[in-house]
Design a protein around this nucleic acid. Structure first.
Lengths: 379, 379
DNA sequence: GCAAATGGTTCATTTCATAAAAAAATGGTA
DNA sequence: TACCATTTTTTTATGAAATGAACCATTTGC
C-alpha cells in the first residue's frame, strides 16, 4: 500500500518533527514533484495533516505532521511483576494503561495478557480502530526474528514463542524485544533524544540493563549480547571481587544492582528499601553512605568503559527517584568523569532520569509504531 | 559514469566473492534483466570478468568477479617512522612498496610523500594506468570530511590538511583516516573477516589502538573517539594505578603498550627490546614473566570489557610476532575468558595476528578502493 | 534423443523521478 | 492600488530505469 518513498517521508517527519514539502525534498534529496505526489497520498489516507503556515519571504510553507491518531499500538512490559500494558498513539503518548500479575507459566501469561489487551481495546474506544500492532519487552534474550524468547532467567522461560501466541490470539502483528533494547528504541522514536545517532541508556533495577544506538541503529552484536553491562568487569582496588551468579568475579551487578544493594543493606542491618536507605545516607549515616558510594562508583566505572569504547553523545541513566540527588548519583558521575579521556569539544553528556516500569511498556509499543512508520522492522 | 546499480554489484561481488548473474539478482532483489544490462556495462569497461562455469542441473552459471587490475590505489601509513607506502590492486594485493623517513614538518612530509608516490607510479608500470586514489592512515584524529588531521600527538600536528595537499600535488583524490580505523576498514574490504558484520581489532604498538565494525559500518562515535581503548580504566587489584599522560589513573596504556613494557623493562634491568624480553620470559625469568603477564592480563581485561559491551563475532589482536605464543598472549586470553559472560552458541572468537606496519598502508589504500567499489565514502 | 531444470537475453511496457513551466500566496514598493 | 520579487506547491511533458514475460542456451538425467 505504501511505497518506500512514503515510509521515507514518515520516518523523516517522525525523526525531525514537522516540516514543509520543500524541506522534505531537500532532506531526502529528491525532487519537489515527487514529494508532492507522495504527500498527497498520505494526506488522503489521513496519516499526515497540514498544520499552520510558516511565513517567510515568499509564499508561506505548510507544515506537515504525522497525525497522532493515524494508528495506535499496544506495548507490553514483562520487565517487572506486575506486567504493565499501555495503549499509545503514533506520537508515543499513552492513551490507556493496565496492570496484570506476571504469570510464570507461559500459557497462563499469554492468557492474562490477551485479557488485558482486550480490556485496553475496550477502554481505548475510537482510538483502537486503527490498532496496528503489539510490542513486548522482556528481560532475556530474543530470537533474531523477534518472536521467541530464547532464554530468560528472570521469567524462567526457554524458547517461548510468545510472539506467535499473541499474534494468533489477538490477530495483531507482534514484535518481541529485550527490555533494554525496547527502552532505547522507544527513546529513539519518541523520546527527547530522538534523532540522536549515537547514544546509550543504562537502567538500574533489580538487575542492570544497558543498550546502545550506534549510527542510528540498535547495536545487537553477534549473538544479541551487546550491552550486557551487568557482567562488565569492574573490580576496583579495595572493592573486593564478589563471585557472581555467572561464575566470574568482579561483575558490576554484584555491586550496583538494586538486588546487590538491598542484600548488602540487609547484611549491614540497614533498611532494605532504597528510599529509606538513600534518606539515611543523606543524613550522613556512614554505612549507608559507603554502601551507596561503592555502588555508584562501580556503575560510574562501567559508564566510563562505555564512553571510552563507544563515544556516544549521551548516556541516559535511569534511576529510582530516591537515588537522583544521592551519593550514588554523585559517585557515579565523579568516577565516570575521572576515567574518561577529556578532549576538546563537547564530550559525552551523562544525564539521570526517573526509572519507571511504564517506560518499558512505551518502548515495547514503539516497536510496532516503528514498523508503521518505516515499513520494516529493520532496526 | 557508474550508476548506483553498478556500485551495488561491485559491492556485492567484493563482499561475497564471485557469483553468477542470477545470484546477484537474488541477493540484490532485482530482476535478472536489470542485472544483465548492468553487468554488460561493467564487462565492457573491463571492471568485471567472466570466470569459470559452475555446473549444476541446468545451464551452467558463469561466475563473475571483480578484476584485480581494474584499478590500483596508493596507501600511505604514517603510523610509525619510517612511513610506509604501498601500491595495491583492487583485490588488496600489494604490487609495490617503498619507505620514506617520516618528517615532522607537514610541508616536508608532503614533499617526501609526493616523491615516494611518484616512485611508486614509476615502479608500478602498467598497473598505475588506472590509479584511482590515495589513502592516508595516521595516528590521531581526523576531521569529518576525511581531509584534515585535526590533532595528532604522535606527529605533533594540529589542523594539517594533508588530504588537500596531496590531492593538489598528485592530482589524485585522497582520503585520510585514523590508523586503527584504516586497519579495520582494510580488513573489512580485503581481509579474512571480510563480510563479517560485527568485529573489532586491537593492535599493540608503542601505543594501543582499537576500532570496531558494527552493523557493517565503522563505529566512529559522536566525536570520532570510539575505540579509544588506550585509556580504558583497567585498574585491577594488585596492579597499582600509575598516572597516565591523560591525567587519569589506571589507563590501559600505562601497562600494556610496548612503550610501557619497555619502560618497565628498563627500570627492572631487563632487555628493552620486546624480542629478547619475550625470550627471557619463555626461559622462565621471573621478572620478565611478571611484567609480560601483567601487561597481557591488562589487555585481556580491556578485551573482556569490549566483548561484553559490543558482543562482536571476532576480536583480532595484532601483536609483535615475538609475543604470539608468549605469556603475554596466554594471560590475555585467560583474563579475557574469565571476565566474559559465557552463553550458549559460539561466543566471540579472539585471534592473534602478526603486527606489521604494512597493514596500515594496505588499510589506507583500501579507503580509496572502497570509494571505487561503492561510489561513495559512506563507511 | 528428449524432458526437466536452470542461466542468461531481448523487448515492449510500466513505473518512477525529474526538469521545466505554471499557479499560488505573500511582502515590499512605486 | 498595481506590480514585481520571492518562495512554495502543483502540473505537465520527458526520459531513465526496472520489470515481466517470452525466448534462447546449455546442461543433467532418463
Amino acid at each position: 500500500m505504501l511505497s518506500p518513498g512514503h515510509y521515507q517521508i514518515l520516518t523523516t517527519l517522525s525523526r525531525g518533527g514537522p516540516c514543509s514539502r520543500t524541506d522534505l525534498a531537500r532532506t531526502l534529496g529528491v525532487s519537489k514533484a515527487s514529494i508532492s505526489g507522495l504527500v498527497r497520498d498520505l494526506l488522503n489516507q489521513n496519516i499526515l495533516c497540514e498544520q499552520e503556515l510558516v511565513f517567510g519571504v515568499g509564499r508561506p510553507s505548510v507544515s506537515l505532521a504525522v497525525r497522532a491518531d493515524a494508528a495506535s499500538f499496544i506495548g507490553v512490559s514483562l520487565q517487572q511483576d506486575p506486567a504493565v500494558l499501555v495503549l499509545t498513539d503514533l506520537h508515543g503518548s499513552v492513551l490507556a494503561r493496565v496492570e496484570v500479575p506476571r504469570a510464570e507459566d507461559p500459557d497462563l501469561c499469554v492468557e492474562s495478557l490477551v485479557a488485558a489487551i482486550d480490556q485496553l481495546r475496550a477502554t481505548g474506544g475510537a482510538s483502537t480502530e486503527r490498532l496496528s500492532g503489539v510490542g513486548v519487552a522482556l528481560p532475556g534474550f530474543v530470537s533474531h526474528d523477534r518472536h521467541t524468547c530464547v532464554a530468560s532467567t528472570a521469567l524462567g522461560w526457554r524458547n517461548v514463542d510468545i510472539g506467535a501466541a499473541l499474534t494468533e490470539r489477538t490477530g495483531l502483528p507482534t514484535w518481541v524485544e529485550n527490555d533494554a533494547n525496547a527502552l532505547i528504541l522507544g527513546e529513539q522514536l519518541f523520546g527527547p533524544l530522538r534523532g540522536s545517532p549515537d547514544f546509550s541508556m543504562v537502567f538500574v533495577s533489580y538487575g542492570i540493563g544497558c543498550a546502545h544506538i550506534v549510527n542510528r541503529r540498535l547495536l545487537r552484536g553477534n549473538a544479541g549480547g551487546a550491552g550486557e553491562i551487568s557482567h562488565a568487569p569492574i573490580a576496583i582496588e579495595g572493592f573486593g571481587a564478589a563471585p557472581c551468579r555467572c561464575g566470574n568475579k568482579g561483575c558490576l551487578e554484584t555491586v550496583a544492582s538494586l538486588l546487590a544493594i538491598t542484600n548488602a543493606a540487609r547484611r549491614a542491618g540497614l533498611p532494605e528499601q532504597i528510599g529509606p536507605l538513600a534518606a539515611l545516607a543523606a543524613k550522613g549515616q556512614p554505612d549507608a553512605l559507603a554502601l551507596l558510594h561503592r555502588a555508584g562508583s562501580a556503575l560510574g566505572l562501567a559508564t566510563a568503559q562505555l564512553i571510552q569504547m563507544l563515544d556516544p553523545s549521551h548516556v541516559v541513566v535511569m534511576l529510582d527517584p530516591a537515588l537522583h540527588d544521592s551519593v550514588f548519583a554523585h559517585a557515579l558521575r565523579k568516577e565516570a568523569d575521572s576515567h574518561i579521556l577529556h578532549r576538546e569539544g563537547p564530550g559525552t553528556m551523562v544525564t539521570f532520569r526517573d526509572f519507571a516500569p511504564d517506560n518499558f511498556a512505551s518502548g515495547a509499543a514503539s516497536l510496532a509504531a516503528r514498523y508503521f512508520i518505516s515499513g520494516s522492522d529493520a532496526l
